[in-house]
């Protein structure tokens, strides 16, 4: 499900004394069946953009098209849209209110599809998608650990089978193991279940490993957008706009600045270690140091 923004602006408290510009003149196109990341410093408009995508807030001006839905047009039907777009908030587990995981996950289905008699099978299927088995059905969601809670929250959104899944800071407050599991889950959702996924985050190290495309925001404007390699390789531009830079790329950049050696595209830390090792074995750092004065 693709997402398109055309000249979208948004002001908090529009036309009031404390009016505050959050987004201005945003144009972007996010392709379907990919993982997109939205990054930027605090207050750059990330969360606002996400609320616009989910139709929670209405843009002050401009048009938003998500799949076949033209948001806030006359023909626009909210309930069908809600079925197709799933939003997972920051700390989604704080919204739990049922006594068991089964009820919690089934809640949306009961509302969207009250005539469905096979809710339980559907719940089991969705829990399986997020890597939880049947034994969780009867457990109390508040007694689960952080990673499991987050999975249950994602399952309760997946039950309505959304084509577009939007996550606001999905890894916040999770420990490393839960984080890795969540990243694997998102990859599976994209590859096996063909979902389009949009992640708003400042955890760029996580993002760098799973994302396809990146949008960088600063002060309510898009600084750069595109393929992750193109975006992240431009470290100076990211620094200038207070956007976070993945640690692997940051290290490569420091090495480049110090020695002039370009280690090339490295997808993760292990490849970085291998690249450093082979550069040292081939005496690349030494050669470059000698070469610099003669340039």
């Amino acid at each position: 499900m693709q997402v398109e923004f055309k000249n979208v602006s948004f002001y908090y408290n529009y036309n009031m004394k404390d009016e505050k510009k959050a987004l201005s003149d945003i144009n972007m196109y996010l392709q379907s069946n990919l993982i997109h990341g939205i990054i930027g410093s605090i207050g750059s408009g990330k969360s606002t953009m996400l609320e616009l995508m989910n139709g929670i807030t209405m843009p002050t001006s401009g048009e938003i098209t998500i799949g076949k839905y033209e948001l806030f047009k006359k023909s626009f039907k909210f309930n069908k849209f809600r079925y197709d777009v799933g939003l997972v908030y920051q700390f989604p587990e704080k919204q739990f209110f049922c006594n068991s995981v089964g009820e919690e996950v089934a809640f949306a289905e009961k509302i969207f599809n009250p005539k469905n008699k096979n809710i339980k099978t559907k719940v089991v299927k969705v829990l399986k998608m997020v890597g939880l088995d049947k034994t969780y059905l009867k457990r109390n969601p508040s007694m689960l650990n952080g990673g499991e809670k987050r999975r249950v929250a994602i399952a309760s959104v997946l039950i309505s089978n959304p084509k577009l899944l939007i996550l606001d800071e999905p890894t916040i407050g999770l420990d490393n193991n839960s984080k890795k599991n969540l990243m694997d889950l998102l990859r599976i959702l994209k590859e096996k279940y063909l979902k389009t996924i949009i992640i708003v985050t400042h955890d760029v190290d996580m993002l760098y490993e799973i994302v396809d495309n990146v949008v960088v925001l600063n002060k309510g404007k898009i600084v750069v957008q595109g393929n992750k390699l193109d975006v992240f390789s431009n470290v100076d531009l990211l620094d200038k706009n207070n956007a976070p830079v993945p640690s692997v790329i940051r290290t490569e950049k420091i090495i480049y600045d110090k020695t002039g050696v370009d280690l090339g595209y490295l997808p993760n830390m292990n490849s970085l270690v291998r690249a450093i090792k082979s550069a040292i074995e081939k005496n690349k750092f030494e050669d470059q140091k000698k070469a610099v004065p003669y340039e």
Binding site: D175, S247, T251, M269
Partner: peptide, 27 residues
Amino acid sequence: GLEVPFAVELSQKLKVYKIIDTLELDL
């Protein structure tokens, strides 16, 4: 399940190859 800072993890891995011999927090 704790996340070790990037620089520490990287120095740990480089230590295995005997490229460096201390742990660093600063990139």
